[in-house]
Design a binder for these strands. Structure first.
Lengths: 211, 211, 211, 211
DNA sequence: TATGAATGAGGTTTCATTCAT
DNA sequence: GATGAATGAAACCTCATTCAT
């Protein structure tokens, strides 16, 4: 029964992690059971333990693999060309939303589940989030300087900005995945408009303040 | 043993829900145990079941109570005065971030855990999210019209915008709660700047588009 | 809430036992809960405990009350007149099936539940069963002697016979209660025919034996 | 701990069901605990659940297994030979009482507990009861016709008769199991005499009727 | 490489019962 | 006479994990 075929370890591991990502995405970390994952992977439970050691390690491995895949997709799209920063930002956003749309389970695991399961998973997810934030804010800063000349905004302001931007991106990605008919391109455009113009004003130090 | 005193049902129920919110916030829905909740509330487990019926109902009750509290805080702050919309928006944001900061556990339950536990909790959380989004986008639209005259932007655009804004707000609120030294006022200011100027441009139909 | 009226103890006790019989009949001893019984009786649980002391005592009290009622109904019908024994048997059977039909819950408790709950209930039920069996076999013996002159059949034979007869009666009573349209009279007639003719032959020592 | 050895599933399942039948027989469905059953079977509780899924399924499986065994024992004994019907009835009764005596726990489960636990068990038990009743009444009818020529008795009469007969048989079987020194042969003889002669008269339409 | 057999630990839930008023 | 408040104990069930082959 199950996968009677003997396959090389790498292949089996991939099957298991694919199954795990699917289960974790649909049910969450706690509710997903190793039984289910093994069955979906078409192997026996002891094999899962032989290769992935424990539920915790399995979840961590999933988070790492999917985080790396997402980051690489974005990094590849952004590149380090000397194209204008807004074009690179656009490319990065497209890649981000495209990847999230292509692998909705992976995106659900990263955005929803990894962050809510306490340590050590939250740390793992936070690392990815920061890396993404770094990308985005870096590009935006670069773009802003290119457009408006050198502006000094405080470190704290940048951090807050990054949070706001990444939050928007996450929210839009999830919304796009859940709402039929919404394309990655559309989500990217919304964020681009929003971030671009919003940031522009901010860089010019046009702020709102209560009377 | 435990809570020695005999207290009226309403009081006990509040104690239990407070304990539940704390446990759910720290551990998530699945990982939190009824044993723990009862112990933290200072009562025995059967009493929790007598009053709140089941883990699921308890969680739902927590979500409802905290969602209502948050919404009321925002609604009260926004009011229906004829103050200028930007002032009202500012007041609403301040209330929102202030409330999230005052009750970090409640905020964690609403923003992190309720949304990731599948039905029926996600629906409950989504309802609140939409109400908040409605508030915010309503005010922003009003403000934008006041500032820039009548502008037509598509329904889909508004929805996307709302997602982006609410995502920013959520992200900022969580960040503020987790980062020592960040005040609610600061978070509100960041979002105000961001939203205000970003939205302004958007209303003027100044969009970014790839070449 | 519940029955705010203050009633004399005897009345309350009867209400409680009525409720208990109903619950035990429908759900069985174990599955019936004191909560349900108290609610159906319209009183609070502590009052049930004050009067009936425990679930076990309550069940025992129900068995006793209903057994006594059934036995009295039969005894009254049979009487100690000098009417011919077959008439008296017929009257007894009519009373038995009539009572079982009038109080189906009581009959269910006695026939189904009391006997299956181990000690001390089985003993209580067995006592009633024996008393009924005594009645019936007494009458039958008397009748047989009247019809066929003195016959000696062994004590063991009589006991076996009693078991067979009582078993038939129980089975017919339950069947009559469960089958719409079957009257007590009909059930009594079936048993009378069966017992009467069967017994007749037996008394004449006409037995079947393998070749 | 427990059963040290690793045994094939089929063997373990049988052990578990044997233990379950014993526990259910002695304590009833509700009072028997899965803990006890597992311990008596010499395995851990999770294994019981792994193989039998739930207390309800376990009980149902026991009822089915024991009902089938009893029916097969009777059917085998009755056969479809062309022996005279009274001989075949006698063989069937012997088999019935013999089987009940050989497996008193199984008989207790079938006769006492299965029928009193409401759906879905009652239905399962009723099915067996009907099958037995069918056997017996079929044979009796056949025998009666052979002995007394064609007689018409109403359908309702037959049903009532079947109830009475099966009730006798059940009662006698239980009595034989509970009374030291009573053999299956004796019980069968009692019923044979009773049924045979009683039925005979009935077929000849010799009925008792009140004056 | 791969699995059928097995379990310790812990989860949610229910119930008979009692205290204090 | 009557009850709202409260609990110890134990039930069913599940799960991550390991052993022996």
């Amino acid at each position: 029964m199950a996968g009677t075929k003997r396959l090389p370890r790498a292949v089996r591991e991939r099957q298991m992690m694919d199954a795990a990502v699917a289960c974790f995405a649909r049910q969450g970390y706690q509710a997903a059971s190793m039984d289910e994952i093994a069955e979906l992977a078409g192997v026996s439970k002891p094999l899962v333990y032989l290769y992935l050691h424990s539920k915790e390690e399995l979840f961590t491995a999933c988070i790492r693999r999917e985080a790396r895949a997402l980051l690489e997709a974005v990094a590849d799209a952004v590149g380090d060309t000397d194209a204008p920063p807004d074009e690179r930002l656009w490319a990065g956003l497209l890649a981000f939303f495209g990847h999230a749309a292509d692998r909705p389970d992976a995106w659900a695991v990263l955005s929803r589940h990894a962050r809510t399961q306490g340590e050590p998973f939250a740390t793992e997810a936070a690392r990815m989030r920061e890396e993404i934030a770094g990308f985005v804010t870096g590009l935006i800063g670069e773009a802003a300087r290119a457009a408006h000349g050198p502006v000094a905004i405080g470190e704290r302001d940048v951090a807050a900005l990054a949070q706001a931007l990444v939050g928007s991106a996450e929210s839009l990605a999830t919304w796009a995945n859940e709402t039929p008919g919404v394309t990655a391109r559309e989500a990217a455009a919304t964020l681009m408009d929003f971030a671009w113009s919003g940031l522009g004003n901010l860089m010019k130090n046009e702020r709102w303040s209560p009377r």
